[in-house]
């Protein structure tokens, strides 16, 4: 079912969303929660939109949903702990890599955790 709010999300409604959002961790999350506070129904599983949007980037090298069809490692179905440890290892330099250190340094530890959670749980939530 398509979401059809009675009111248009005008600048003033946005303002409200922004104000309501005051204390959340991330813009995406806070605005989403502001929206749900306004009773916009979340049609799809939307537990961590931030994790999903971060993880979409990974697919460009690691394959759709992290399933590689090439020499690049598959990350789909690896445990959350494994992926998080690996990513943090790349970021700190403890884990040797060609390009992964350069990527991992672009994310906070929290974001790496969200990416790990996304790929660590995707095999049970996706086809």
């Amino acid at each position: 079912m398509a979401v059809k709010p009675e009111i248009g999300l005008t600048a003033s409604a946005l303002m409200i969303a922004v104000i309501v959002a005051g204390s959340s961790a991330l813009p995406a999350d806070c605005l989403a929660s502001a929206n749900s506070a306004r009773k916009f129904s979340a049609r799809q599983s939307d537990s961590s939109p931030r994790g999903q949007i971060l993880a979409l980037s990974c697919a460009s090298c690691h394959g759709t949903d992290g399933k590689s069809v090439s020499v690049i490692p598959t990350i789909n179905g690896r445990s959350v702990e494994y992926i998080e440890t690996a990513l943090k290892g790349y970021k700190s330099g403890d884990r040797p890599s060609t390009v992964m250190a350069r990527h991992a340094k672009g994310y906070t530890d929290e974001e790496l955790r969200l990416i790990a959670e996304y790929f660590g749980t995707i095999s049970t939530t996706n086809k």
Binding site: A2, V3, K4, P5, L9, L14, A17, L26, P27, A28, L31, A32, N35, F40, A42, R43, P49, R50, I53, L54, L56, S57
Partner: peptide, 10 residues
């Protein structure tokens, strides 16, 4: 389409 503000992009 869901009437939500786009998430911060990555």
């Amino acid at each position: 389409f869901q009437g939500k503000v786009p998430a911060a992009p990555s």
